[in-house]
């Protein structure tokens, strides 16, 4: 722009000096000074970023900046800081027996939160995020336990699993009464009527009576004469209101017919998870409301 300043006659404002189409002129509306100075200051400030922080991409690398900042380093530092802040809890969990941990409210808060997180990561795919279970996968909130609901038995199940292949695993198999033709379809139906009657289901009394005899012969060895199950062998309580594979007659018939054997597998977590995590999961599961 030339040094000459033209003043627009109508507005009294300066023009930029450019002319279009012979007579079109543009008014010069400079930025307010304070605004302009803030802009300049920001530009100067930004140079500091070039020097201090990673800024410019190069062909195979980038300018690292003097501070050596990187988000990866930040994350690693955060993780280390997290571990550090957890260290005293982890040490206490490792050192104390479970009964003592359960009496320490501060430690319990850590265990239950950590246990919930570990449960979501490791257990929820089969047992559900709320540990509510699915057909064939036990609900861990209730008071019905296949292999025992004390902290000791829960920890054992967690460590060695069920039908997991681990040398110390829980193992059991219900016979395939129908598939292997041990019982006829009619007998299976009677047995199903009988076990369902134990938790109040209605059926023909004659069928129940026949089923009672079949039960005493075929089932009582594992499930007990009173049908209340046997946690030593993982035989479920058939007299309660909880059915792992469903409590409708068709469900129970299917269970007796096929035994449902071999499909319920719980992995052995020993070796996959560290002892402290297994301990936290034990306490967490025990705390879900059904713990004995």
């Amino acid at each position: 722009m030339s040094g000459h300043k033209e003043i627009d006659a109508v507005t009294g404002a300066e023009t930029t000096g450019h002319v279009w189409d012979g007579d079109l002129k543009e008014l010069n509306k400079p930025l307010p000074r304070w605004w302009l100075y803030v802009l300049y200051a920001s530009i100067v400030w930004s140079i500091g970023y070039w020097v201090l922080y990673p800024t410019w991409p190069l062909v195979s690398t980038y300018t690292h900046g003097m501070l050596g900042y990187s988000q990866r380093i930040e994350v690693a530092r955060d993780i280390a800081a997290g571990k550090e802040s957890q260290a005293k809890f982890v040490a206490a969990i490792a050192a104390k027996p479970i009964a003592d941990i359960e009496k320490d409210p501060d430690l319990m808060e850590f265990v239950l939160r950590g246990g919930a997180a570990q449960f979501s990561n490791n257990c929820a795919p089969c047992h559900g995020r709320g540990a509510q279970g699915f057909k064939g996968y036990p609900n861990l909130n209730d008071d019905d336990w296949l292999w025992g609901g004390t902290v000791e038995t829960i920890e054992r199940t967690l460590r060695y699993g069920v039908r997991s292949g681990h040398p110390d695993t829980h193992d059991s198999a219900m016979p395939r009464f129908g598939v292997d033709q041990v019982l006829t379809s009619a007998q299976i139906s009677d047995a199903a009527d009988f076990v369902r009657s134990l938790s109040g289901a209605k059926a023909d009394p004659a069928a129940i009576e026949r089923g009672k005899g079949i039960f005493a012969e075929q089932c009582a060895a594992c499930h007990g004469a009173d049908a209340k199950g046997n946690q030593e062998m993982g035989a479920p309580n058939l007299a309660d209101a909880i059915w792992l594979y469903g409590g409708e007659k068709s469900d129970v018939v299917e269970t007796i017919r096929t035994g449902r054997a071999g499909i319920g597998v719980m992995p052995a977590w020993e070796g996959k998870l560290d002892p402290v995590t297994i301990k936290m999961l034990t306490i967490y599961v025990h705390s879900l409301g059904g713990g004995k």
Binding site: G128, Q132, N139, D143, A241, G290
Partner: peptide, 18 residues
Amino acid sequence: EDRNPLFVRLSDGGIRNG
């Protein structure tokens, strides 16, 4: 209130909420 599960059926047929 516990939302997952909303309630738990106990072995004796009782209902529990957390």
